[in-house]
Amino acid sequence: MKIEIRDITKNFGDKEVLKGITFETESGKAHGLLGRNGAGKTTTIRIIMGVFFQNSGEILVDEKEINRDKLRIGYLPEERGLYPKIKIAEQLVYFGMLRGLSKQDARKAGVKWLDRMGMTEYKDKKLETLSKGNQQKIQLAATLLCDPQLIILDEPFSGLDPVNAMLLKDVISEMIDGGSAVIFSSHQMNYIEEFCRDISILNAGKIAVDGQINDIKRSYPRNTLIIYSQEYDRLSSFIAKSFSERTDSVESSEKDSIVTVKLRNEKDKDELIKLLLDNKFAFDGFRVKEPSLNDIFVQYTEGGI
């Protein structure tokens, strides 16, 4: 199953909040939606969920207009909330039924997910009696009840402690492996890198950059070399002296025992390494410095809102 979001625009009054959002994902894959607060992530997600209608553009499932009644969608909204005064098992059945399950199937799914979340003992408790982290787990159970083909997770890790975050990570991985398509919005770049091969960074209602994370990283100049060596100080002085015409900067770090060399031309990497080897410098290794997802995010979104 392939889900395509094509050139979506949305206006609220005179304000244009989405200016042509396009991305796609498919079964067994996760797509990361990144952006600062107010960039348009939640509006995009709400349009996919049918809460708002787009002004233009289309949402296609296997090249046909999305039919939300036929597609099993699991949605974890940014604004978490269930019924605080109703028993957990009861409200899971209710939400399962609203997502199209029969009462029996909703009950079975509720039992299964409560067990998976380690929450079976709380099934007859009211939601308000649970800790915030446990309430989040119930919310996730409500999201996954209908065995969704498409899962939309808006900031799923916010408010979770490391143990619960690990559980959520495992569950999401299982769902991806099980063939669900996932659209994932988060500010926590490590989770995005963990699940998503593809990302879209939104800035002021537009896609600032998108594609496979590795391709985005590779698109950056590969002219910065990190050299690991115990002789970082001597190495640094040598490069600064002998290779100065071909470098922009040379920095050493005592803490990491590294030397970072920014070359004017990335083709000079080989020559620099050869020079160091010829001069019998001992080093533990070297690699080209790639930008982190965080660096990319900051670069594309800084000053954007």
Binding site: M49, G50, V51, Y75, P77, E79, G81, P84, F95, L98
Partner: peptide
């Protein structure tokens, strides 16, 4: 209680 966000996408 913010249950609305979920409800509005279910029905």
């Amino acid at each position: 209680t913010r249950a609305m966000e979920l409800l509005i996408t279910c029905a």
